[in-house]
Amino acid sequence: MALDSLAVGTVPWTIKGELILNCNCTVFCPCVVSLGQHPPTEGHCQAWAGVRIDEGQYGDTDLSGLNVGLFLEIPGNMGRGNWKAAAFIDDRASDDAFEALSNIFSGAARGTTGLFGILVGEFLGAEREQVVFETHGNERRLQVGRKIQGAVVPVGGKDGKDIVVTNTEYWMGPDITVATATKGRVRAFGRVWDFDGRSAEICQIDWHGPK
Protein backbone atom coordinates (compact mmCIF):
# COMPACT_ATOMS: atom_id res chain seq x y z
CA MET A 1 0.00 0.00 0.00
CA ALA A 2 1.37 3.42 -0.95
CA LEU A 3 2.39 5.59 1.96
CA ASP A 4 0.39 8.54 0.70
CA SER A 5 -2.81 6.50 1.22
CA LEU A 6 -2.01 5.93 4.91
CA ALA A 7 -2.74 8.48 7.62
CA VAL A 8 0.47 9.72 9.24
CA GLY A 9 0.46 8.78 12.90
CA THR A 10 -1.42 5.50 12.34
CA VAL A 11 1.30 3.46 10.63
CA PRO A 12 3.08 0.81 12.77
CA TRP A 13 6.84 1.32 12.76
CA THR A 14 9.96 0.02 14.47
CA ILE A 15 13.64 0.97 14.54
CA LYS A 16 16.39 -1.05 16.22
CA GLY A 17 20.02 0.00 16.12
CA GLU A 18 22.37 2.49 17.73
CA LEU A 19 22.30 6.22 18.37
CA ILE A 20 25.25 8.48 19.07
CA LEU A 21 24.98 12.09 20.19
CA ASN A 22 27.41 14.91 20.92
CA CYS A 23 26.39 18.20 22.49
CA ASN A 24 27.98 21.36 23.85
CA CYS A 25 27.74 20.25 27.51
CA THR A 26 31.18 20.33 29.11
CA VAL A 27 30.46 17.26 31.25
CA PHE A 28 28.02 14.38 30.80
CA CYS A 29 24.62 15.68 29.72
CA PRO A 30 22.39 16.36 32.77
CA CYS A 31 19.27 15.76 30.66
CA VAL A 32 19.75 11.98 30.93
CA VAL A 33 19.20 11.76 34.67
CA SER A 34 17.01 14.85 35.11
CA LEU A 35 14.81 13.89 32.13
CA GLY A 36 15.19 17.35 30.68
CA GLN A 37 14.33 19.28 33.84
CA HIS A 38 17.91 20.39 34.60
CA PRO A 39 19.44 22.98 32.25
CA PRO A 40 22.37 22.01 30.01
CA THR A 41 25.78 22.93 31.44
CA GLU A 42 26.01 25.92 29.09
CA GLY A 43 22.41 27.02 29.67
CA HIS A 44 21.37 25.94 26.16
CA CYS A 45 21.85 22.81 24.06
CA GLN A 46 23.43 22.49 20.64
CA ALA A 47 23.82 18.94 19.39
CA TRP A 48 24.21 16.54 16.53
CA ALA A 49 23.22 12.89 16.52
CA GLY A 50 23.48 9.88 14.27
CA VAL A 51 21.23 6.83 14.05
CA ARG A 52 22.27 3.50 12.55
CA ILE A 53 19.20 1.44 11.70
CA ASP A 54 20.03 -2.26 11.92
CA GLU A 55 16.40 -3.33 11.60
CA GLY A 56 13.52 -1.06 10.74
CA GLN A 57 10.05 -1.07 9.27
CA TYR A 58 7.40 1.54 8.56
CA GLY A 59 4.26 -0.22 7.45
CA ASP A 60 5.47 -2.33 4.51
CA THR A 61 8.55 -0.14 3.92
CA ASP A 62 11.90 -1.60 4.94
CA LEU A 63 14.24 0.85 6.70
CA SER A 64 17.00 -1.64 7.59
CA GLY A 65 20.56 -0.61 6.79
CA LEU A 66 19.85 3.11 6.51
CA ASN A 67 21.39 5.94 8.55
CA VAL A 68 20.01 9.26 9.76
CA GLY A 69 21.76 12.40 10.99
CA LEU A 70 20.08 14.90 13.30
CA PHE A 71 20.61 18.58 14.09
CA LEU A 72 19.24 19.87 17.40
CA GLU A 73 19.19 23.30 19.02
CA ILE A 74 17.42 23.80 22.35
CA PRO A 75 17.29 27.25 24.02
CA GLY A 76 17.14 26.02 27.63
CA ASN A 77 15.84 23.05 29.59
CA MET A 78 15.13 20.21 27.19
CA GLY A 79 11.73 19.57 28.78
CA ARG A 80 10.52 23.13 28.13
CA GLY A 81 10.52 22.69 24.37
CA ASN A 82 10.94 25.32 21.66
CA TRP A 83 13.55 23.12 19.95
CA LYS A 84 14.83 23.62 16.44
CA ALA A 85 15.56 20.34 14.66
CA ALA A 86 16.37 18.90 11.26
CA ALA A 87 16.91 15.42 9.87
CA PHE A 88 19.42 14.31 7.26
CA ILE A 89 18.12 11.16 5.58
CA ASP A 90 20.41 8.60 3.98
CA ASP A 91 20.57 9.27 0.24
CA ARG A 92 20.29 5.50 -0.34
CA ALA A 93 16.71 5.59 0.96
CA SER A 94 13.86 4.92 -1.45
CA ASP A 95 11.20 7.61 -1.81
CA ASP A 96 8.92 5.66 0.54
CA ALA A 97 11.74 5.18 3.08
CA PHE A 98 12.60 8.88 2.90
CA GLU A 99 8.99 9.81 3.61
CA ALA A 100 8.80 7.25 6.41
CA LEU A 101 11.96 8.50 8.12
CA SER A 102 10.84 12.10 7.70
CA ASN A 103 7.61 11.22 9.50
CA ILE A 104 9.45 9.39 12.27
CA PHE A 105 12.08 12.04 12.96
CA SER A 106 9.67 14.98 12.74
CA GLY A 107 7.52 13.29 15.37
CA ALA A 108 4.54 12.97 13.03
CA ALA A 109 4.67 9.15 13.18
CA ARG A 110 4.10 9.30 16.95
CA GLY A 111 5.45 6.62 19.25
CA THR A 112 8.95 6.93 20.71
CA THR A 113 9.86 10.00 18.65
CA GLY A 114 6.43 11.55 19.03
CA LEU A 115 7.89 13.92 21.62
CA PHE A 116 9.54 15.77 18.73
CA GLY A 117 6.07 16.81 17.66
CA ILE A 118 5.55 18.33 21.11
CA LEU A 119 8.98 19.80 21.90
CA VAL A 120 10.15 20.98 18.47
CA GLY A 121 8.90 24.49 17.82
CA GLU A 122 10.56 24.69 14.39
CA PHE A 123 11.30 21.62 12.30
CA LEU A 124 13.82 22.85 9.75
CA GLY A 125 13.02 19.96 7.44
CA ALA A 126 14.34 16.65 6.21
CA GLU A 127 16.81 16.47 3.36
CA ARG A 128 18.74 13.79 1.56
CA GLU A 129 22.44 13.56 2.35
CA GLN A 130 25.20 11.01 2.27
CA VAL A 131 25.06 9.73 5.85
CA VAL A 132 27.84 7.36 6.88
CA PHE A 133 27.82 5.73 10.33
CA GLU A 134 30.87 3.56 11.01
CA THR A 135 32.38 1.75 13.99
CA HIS A 136 36.16 1.47 14.33
CA GLY A 137 37.11 -0.37 17.50
CA ASN A 138 35.13 1.42 20.19
CA GLU A 139 34.90 4.67 18.21
CA ARG A 140 31.69 5.53 16.37
CA ARG A 141 31.98 7.94 13.46
CA LEU A 142 29.31 9.95 11.67
CA GLN A 143 29.74 11.82 8.41
CA VAL A 144 26.82 13.78 6.97
CA GLY A 145 28.07 15.26 3.71
CA ARG A 146 30.04 18.36 4.68
CA LYS A 147 27.54 19.32 7.38
CA ILE A 148 28.44 17.01 10.26
CA GLN A 149 31.75 15.32 11.03
CA GLY A 150 31.60 13.49 14.32
CA ALA A 151 33.27 10.75 16.31
CA VAL A 152 32.60 9.59 19.86
CA VAL A 153 34.25 7.08 22.20
CA PRO A 154 32.98 5.55 25.46
CA VAL A 155 34.45 6.70 28.75
CA GLY A 156 36.09 3.79 30.57
CA GLY A 157 35.45 2.95 34.19
CA LYS A 158 37.72 1.61 36.92
CA ASP A 159 37.52 -1.99 35.67
CA GLY A 160 38.13 -0.99 32.06
CA LYS A 161 34.50 -1.44 31.09
CA ASP A 162 32.45 1.46 29.69
CA ILE A 163 30.62 3.69 32.17
CA VAL A 164 26.90 3.13 31.60
CA VAL A 165 23.98 4.94 33.22
CA THR A 166 21.39 2.18 33.51
CA ASN A 167 17.67 1.80 34.15
CA THR A 168 16.75 5.37 33.24
CA GLU A 169 13.46 6.66 31.85
CA TYR A 170 15.31 8.68 29.23
CA TRP A 171 13.39 8.80 25.97
CA MET A 172 16.19 7.34 23.84
CA GLY A 173 16.55 4.18 25.90
CA PRO A 174 17.11 2.99 29.48
CA ASP A 175 20.88 2.44 29.25
CA ILE A 176 23.12 5.30 28.14
CA THR A 177 26.85 4.82 27.66
CA VAL A 178 28.81 7.86 28.84
CA ALA A 179 31.07 9.03 26.03
CA THR A 180 33.13 11.94 24.81
CA ALA A 181 33.61 13.39 21.35
CA THR A 182 36.94 13.03 19.61
CA LYS A 183 35.42 15.12 16.81
CA GLY A 184 32.25 17.18 16.79
CA ARG A 185 31.91 19.56 13.88
CA VAL A 186 28.66 21.01 12.53
CA ARG A 187 28.40 23.35 9.56
CA ALA A 188 24.68 23.65 8.84
CA PHE A 189 21.83 26.16 8.91
CA GLY A 190 24.26 29.04 9.42
CA ARG A 191 25.77 27.42 12.53
CA VAL A 192 29.46 26.72 13.04
CA TRP A 193 29.90 24.37 16.01
CA ASP A 194 32.98 22.56 17.27
CA PHE A 195 32.40 20.24 20.20
CA ASP A 196 35.61 18.20 20.32
CA GLY A 197 36.10 16.87 23.85
CA ARG A 198 32.54 17.65 24.91
CA SER A 199 29.79 15.37 26.24
CA ALA A 200 28.59 12.46 24.15
CA GLU A 201 26.23 9.51 24.48
CA ILE A 202 25.87 6.08 22.95
CA CYS A 203 22.56 4.24 23.17
CA GLN A 204 21.18 0.98 21.80
CA ILE A 205 17.71 1.90 20.57
CA ASP A 206 14.51 -0.09 20.23
CA TRP A 207 11.88 2.43 19.12
CA HIS A 208 8.37 1.91 17.86
CA GLY A 209 5.10 3.61 17.07
CA PRO A 210 2.47 4.88 16.78
CA LYS A 211 1.93 3.94 20.47
Rank of each mutant, 00 (worst) to 15 (best):
L3Q: 08
L3M: 13
D4E: 14
S5N: 06
S5R: 12
L6Y: 02
A7M: 11
P12W: 11
K16P: 05
E18L: 10
I20H: 10
L21T: 02
L21Q: 09
C23W: 03
N24S: 08
V27P: 00
V27D: 15
F28D: 13
C29Y: 01
V33L: 15
G36R: 04
G36Y: 02
G36W: 04
G36F: 01
P39E: 08
P39S: 08
P39M: 04
P40G: 10
E42V: 07
G43K: 13
H44R: 12
Q46M: 13
W48M: 13
R52A: 14
R52W: 04
D54A: 07
D54N: 11
E55M: 00
Q57N: 14
Y58V: 06
G59Y: 03
T61F: 02
T61Q: 06
G65N: 03
L66M: 11
N67F: 10
V68K: 10
L70G: 13
F71Y: 15
I74L: 10
P75E: 06
G79R: 13
G79F: 03
R80G: 07
N82S: 15
D90I: 04
D91H: 12
D91L: 01
S94R: 06
D95L: 03
A97R: 10
E99P: 00
A100G: 02
A100M: 02
L101V: 05
S106D: 11
G107P: 02
A108Q: 09
R110W: 04
R110Q: 12
G111M: 09
G111S: 06
T113S: 11
T113D: 09
G114L: 13
F116A: 13
G117R: 06
G117A: 10
L119I: 13
V120M: 00
G121D: 11
F123Q: 08
F123Y: 15
L124P: 07
E127K: 12
Q130V: 00
V132Y: 01
F133K: 00
E134S: 15
E134R: 11
T135W: 00
H136C: 04
N138L: 03
E139S: 12
E139A: 15
E139T: 14
R140T: 14
R141W: 13
V144F: 02
R146Y: 05
K147T: 08
G150N: 01
A151E: 00
A151L: 04
V152S: 06
V153Q: 12
P154H: 03
P154T: 11
V155K: 09
G156P: 00
G157T: 05
G157A: 01
K158N: 01
K158C: 00
D159T: 02
D159K: 01
G160H: 06
I163Y: 02
T166E: 05
T166D: 03
N167Y: 07
E169K: 14
Y170R: 05
W171E: 09
M172K: 01
M172R: 06
T177M: 05
A179Y: 05
T180K: 14
T182F: 01
K183F: 00
V186L: 07
F189Q: 12
R191H: 15
R191D: 02
V192T: 14
W193F: 05
D194L: 05
G197F: 11
G197S: 04
R198G: 04
E201S: 14
I202W: 04
C203E: 03
I205R: 04
D206L: 03
G209K: 06
G209R: 08
P210A: 09
